[in-house]
Amino acid sequence: MAENQTSTTELTSQYIAQVTNDLERNTKEQDRIAGDISTLKEQLLALQHDHTVLVQMQEALGGPRPAADTTPAAPSVPNQASAPTKQTGQAKPKKAAATGVKKTADKKTPAKKPAAKAPKSAAQPSLVDLIRGHLEKQSEPRSAAEITTVLSEAHPDRNIKTTVVRTTLENLVARSSAHRNKQGSSVFYTATTEPAAAPQAAAKTD
Results as ranks from 00 to 15, higher is better:
Met57Thr: 13
Ala73Gln: 07
Lys41Asn: 11
Pro93Asp: 04
Lys92Phe: 08
Asp50His: 05
Val77Asp: 13
Ala81Trp: 07
Lys86Asn: 06
Ala46Tyr: 06
Ala83Arg: 09
Leu44Thr: 01
Leu45Tyr: 00
Val55Lys: 08
Lys95Arg: 13
Met57Arg: 06
Leu54Tyr: 11
His49Ala: 14
Thr88Met: 07
Met57Val: 11
Ala83Cys: 03
Ile33Gln: 02
Leu44Ser: 13
Asp69Gln: 02
Gln58Thr: 11
Arg65Ala: 13
Ala96Glu: 15
Ser82Gln: 15
Asp69Thr: 07
Glu42Cys: 01
Asp36Trp: 05
Lys95Leu: 08
Ala34Lys: 01
Val53Ile: 14
Thr71Leu: 04
Gly89Ser: 11
Ser76Asn: 04
Ala81Asp: 08
Gly63Tyr: 05
Thr88Gly: 00
Ala67His: 08
His51Gly: 06
Glu59Gly: 02
Met57Gln: 09
Asp69Tyr: 02
Gly89Lys: 08
Ala96Lys: 13
Gly62Arg: 04
Ile37Tyr: 03
Leu40Asp: 15
Gln56Val: 03
Ala73His: 08
Ser82Arg: 11
Lys86Ile: 12
Gly89Trp: 05
Lys95Asn: 04
Gln43Phe: 12
Arg65Ser: 15
Pro75Glu: 00
Thr52Pro: 00
Lys41Cys: 05
Thr88Leu: 10
Ala60Ile: 00
Ser76Leu: 14
Arg65Gln: 09
Val77Cys: 12
Leu44Ile: 06
Thr85Trp: 08
Ala74Asn: 06
Thr39Val: 13
Ser82Thr: 12
Thr39Pro: 01
Gln43Pro: 00
Ile33Ser: 00
Lys41His: 11
Gln56Ser: 12
Leu45Ser: 09
Leu61Arg: 00
Ser38Gly: 09
Thr70Ala: 14
Lys92Arg: 11
Ala68Tyr: 15
Ala60Gly: 14
Pro78His: 07
Pro75Phe: 12
Glu59Lys: 13
Arg65Val: 14
His49Thr: 14
Lys86His: 03
Leu40Gly: 04
Gln90Glu: 11
Ser76Val: 15
Gly89Phe: 08
Pro78Met: 04
Ile33Cys: 02
Gln43Tyr: 12
Thr71Ile: 15
Leu45Gly: 07
Gln56Met: 06
His49Arg: 15
Ser76Pro: 03
Asp69Cys: 09
Thr85Arg: 12
Leu45Val: 03
Lys92Asp: 14
Thr39Leu: 08
Leu47Pro: 00
Lys86Ala: 06
Gly62His: 01
Lys92Met: 10
Val53His: 01
Ala46Lys: 09
Ala74Val: 15
Pro72His: 05
Pro93Gly: 04
Lys92Ile: 10
Leu44Lys: 02
Asp36His: 10
Thr70Phe: 12
Leu40Trp: 10
Pro93Leu: 07
Ala68His: 09
Ala91Gln: 11
Thr70Leu: 14
Ser82Trp: 13
Gln80Trp: 07
Pro84Val: 01
Arg65Pro: 01
Leu61Trp: 02
Pro78Arg: 03
Ala91Asn: 06
Ala83Gly: 02
Pro72Trp: 07
Asp36Gln: 10
Thr52Arg: 15
Pro84Ser: 03
Asp50Cys: 00
Ala34Cys: 03
Pro84Gly: 08
Ala96Gly: 08
Thr39Ala: 09
Ala74Asp: 06
